[in-house]
C-alpha cells in the first residue's frame, strides 16, 4: 500500500490545492490512479507526457497531475491533442474525456481522430450522464432510465463506445470498469504503448445524479453493480448473445496493426521535399518558385 501512495504522489502537483472537485465516491479518481500506475509502469518521463481533457467532471483531472496539461473546450480535446501531437511527436498525448464530452459535442472529433489513426490514447470515462451540469441524459444513457432531462424515461438508444471506436478505425480498443482498477491500469498501459489511436472505455457511474434519480443506491451499491454486471471477454464468449447484451464486456476488444498518421505524414514530407531543393526556395524568396 505504502508503495502505491508514493507512486501517486510523484505524479501529483504539490503546488495545486487539494481536495479535488469530485464527489466523494466518484469513480474518476480511480481512473486517475490507474493512469498513474500505467504511466509509472511504462516509466515515462513526466516531461514527455501531455494530458489533455475537455469539459465536465473528467475535464478537471489534468490540473491535479504533474504533466504538460491542457484543459480545453467541451468536446474538442481530441482536436487540440491532434495539433499538439503533430507539433511534438515525442510526447505521449493522453486524452481524458467523459461520455457526453467525447460522443455528443465531441462525436465528430472522436470518429475522425479514430479514422485518422493519430497516435493518441483516448480514455473515455463513461458514467452515462452529464454529471457536472446536474444529471442530464448523455449519448450513453441507457433506455428507459430517468435523468434531469428525461423525467418520463429516456427514449434514445445509447452509443456503444467501443464498437463505435472500432468501426471508426481505432487500432486498439479496450473496456473495463472502475471496480476493476488493476485491470484498468493494465489496459491503459497497453493503450499508451500502442502506436495509433487507442481507446479505453472506463465504465464508471454517477451516484450523485444518475444513481439518485434511478434509485440505485450509494456509490458502493453502484460499484457492486459494475462487479456483478460485467464479464471478461473470455467469459462473455461462452454466453448466449442475449445474455451477453446485458453485460459489460471487459478486456481488449480490438487490437490491430496499421501505420499511424504521423508515420504516413512523414512520407508526405519526404515526397514533398523530393519535388524541390529547399535552398532554391530561400534563394527565390516567397512565391518565387510556384
Amino acid at each position: 500500500m505504502a508503495r502505491s501512495e508514493h507512486t501517486a504522489y510523484a505524479y501529483l502537483r504539490t503546488t495545486k490545492k487539494f481536495p479535488n472537485i469530485w464527489c466523494a465516491g466518484c469513480g474518476i479518481g480511480i481512473v486517475m490512479g490507474a493512469l498513474i500506475r500505467a504511466i509509472d509502469r511504462i516509466g515515462l518521463d513526466k516531461d514527455d507526457v501531455a494530458l489533455v481533457s475537455g469539459i465536465g467532471c473528467s475535464g478537471r483531472m489534468p490540473v491535479y497531475m504533474d504533466f504538460n496539461t491542457l484543459h480545453t473546450t467541451h468536446g474538442r480535446a481530441l482536436a487540440f491533442a491532434t495539433g499538439l501531437k503533430l507539433a511534438q511527436p515525442k510526447l505521449h498525448v493522453i486524452v481524458v474525456m467523459g461520455d457526453g464530452d467525447a460522443l455528443a459535442i465531441g462525436g465528430n472529433h472522436f470518429i475522425h481522430a479514430a479514422r485518422r489513426n493519430i497516435d493518441l490514447t483516448a480514455i473515455v470515462i463513461n458514467n452515462s450522464i452529464y454529471g457536472m451540469t446536474g444529471g442530464q441524459y448523455s449519448p450513453t444513457t441507457p433506455l428507459e432510465s430517468r435523468t434531469a432531462t428525461a423525467p418520463y424515461g429516456h427514449v434514445e438508444p445509447p452509443f456503444p463506445i467501443c464498437e463505435l471506436s472500432i468501426a471508426a478505425g481505432a487500432t486498439f480498443v479496450a473496456r473495463s470498469t472502475v471496480y476493476h482498477a488493476i485491470e484498468l491500469d493494465k489496459l491503459i498501459e497497453k493503450a499508451i504503448r500502442k502506436v495509433g489511436f487507442s481507446v479505453v472505455e472506463a465504465v464508471s457511474y454517477c451516484h450523485t445524479t444518475y444513481g439518485r434519480m434511478n434509485k440505485l443506491g450509494s456509490s458502493v451499491d453502484m460499484m457492486r453493480m459494475l462487479k456483478d454486471h460485467s464479464v471478461t471477454l473470455a467469459a462473455a464468449e461462452k454466453l448466449m448473445p442475449e445474455e451477453r447484451a446485458m453485460k459489460i464486456v471487459r478486456g481488449v476488444l480490438h487490437d490491430v496493426e496499421k501505420p499511424d498518421y504521423i508515420t504516413l505524414y512523414q512520407q508526405v514530407i519526404e515526397r514533398a521535399k523530393a519535388t524541390i531543393d529547399g535552398k532554391e526556395f530561400l534563394r527565390a524568396g516567397p512565391g518565387g518558385l510556384e
Binding site: 491542457l70 495539433g83 501531437k85 507539433a87 465528430n108 475522425h112
Partner: peptide, 16 residues
C-alpha cells in the same frame, strides 16, 4: 473535420 477542430488543432500545435 470542421473549423472548430481546425482552430483547436492550431492551438494545440502552438502549445507544442
Amino acid at each position: 473535420e470542421d473549423e472548430i477542430a481546425s482552430l483547436a488543432a492550431c492551438i494545440g500545435a502552438s502549445v507544442g
